[in-house]
């Protein structure tokens, strides 16, 4: 891949003073963050700090009400768009708990998603090839494509399937919400490799939300942000993750009260 093609699609996600409430309770209290293509940002924080709220609010989940601020993807305010329009604009959210959808097969779902995001149906043969390559890379069994979406999937299968979608949909910005949770070491490695393949294209930015530092050994962040009390309370480089590993979140949870 030439350097010029990498520069071409540089994208930027700008979160400006974002405030979000759930049922009148304010969860996010002014989040500011900019993610550019080629960058990996880790957001770390204790449970209940609002990390997942940030992910779902950006994606447009109806449970979350944005009470202030902006989320711009290449200058377009995502908050003005419907959930599917945000995805088609280039945003992807890998979910912590992907929902089971009975009667909808993985292959049918993936083809519909790829068709929607690309704006045209992929050629059948090409799609089958991409799908097989993607599944092989993530050590997903071929029979998986005929199963119902997330139905009866193990925790590891669900997460691998999220990363498969990431690789097929090629978003500009990917938000990964605790993709590492519930994975054993082998699954974590496979999933991390998928994320790294996606990052290596250089055309995408990654916002990695996690509670634990474990995944950061496989997916090296450029920036680490500590989230507490609904906002970012400290920022730094990868060394900040090491500090958290050693000291935990205690200092931040106290400070945010």
């Amino acid at each position: 891949m030439s350097d010029s093609s990498r520069v071409r699609s540089g994208s930027t996600l700008e979160i400006r003073d974002l405030h979000v409430a759930v049922e009148d309770k304010e969860i996010l209290r002014g989040v500011n963050l900019t993610v550019r293509s080629g960058e990996t940002h880790a957001i770390m924080g204790p449970n209940g700090s609002g990390k997942s709220t940030l992910a779902y609010a950006i994606a447009g989940h109806p449970k979350y009400t944005v009470t202030g601020g902006q989320v711009l993807l290449d200058g377009v305010d995502l908050l003005e768009l419907s959930v599917d329009e945000r995805a088609r604009a280039g945003l992807f959210l890998a979910m912590q708990y992907p929902v089971e959808v009975p009667g909808v097969s993985v292959s049918n779902f993936l083809r519909s998603a790829v068709t929607s995001v690309r704006g045209e149906a992929p050629k059948l043969r090409e799609f089958a090839k991409d799908l097989k390559a993607g599944m092989d890379a993530l050590s997903i069994d071929a029979a998986f494509a005929q199963r119902n979406l997330n139905e009866g999937f193990s925790g590891g299968e669900k997460k691998r399937h999220e990363i498969l979608q990431l690789e097929l949909l090629k978003p500009k910005i990917a938000v990964l919400d605790e993709t590492d949770s519930g994975l054993d070491v082998d699954a974590l490695r496979v999933v991390s490799e998928g994320i790294n393949r996606f990052r290596d294209s250089g055309e995408t930015g990654v916002l990695l939300i996690t509670h634990y530092t474990r995944i950061l050994r496989y997916v090296k962040p450029d920036f680490v942000h500590v989230f507490a009390g609904g906002r970012i309370v400290e920022q730094g480089g990868p060394e900040l993750a090491d500090k958290l590993e050693a000291e935990g979140y205690e200092a931040y949870t106290k400070a945010s009260v």
Binding site: F109, S116, V117
Partner: peptide, 18 residues
């Protein structure tokens, strides 16, 4: 269900039908 499908770019009406 609808949110999951929409979050993958599938428009509401198509998601509902699926």
């Amino acid at each position: 269900h609808i949110f999951y499908l929409q979050a993958r770019g599938i428009p509401f009406d198509d998601a509902r039908r699926l």
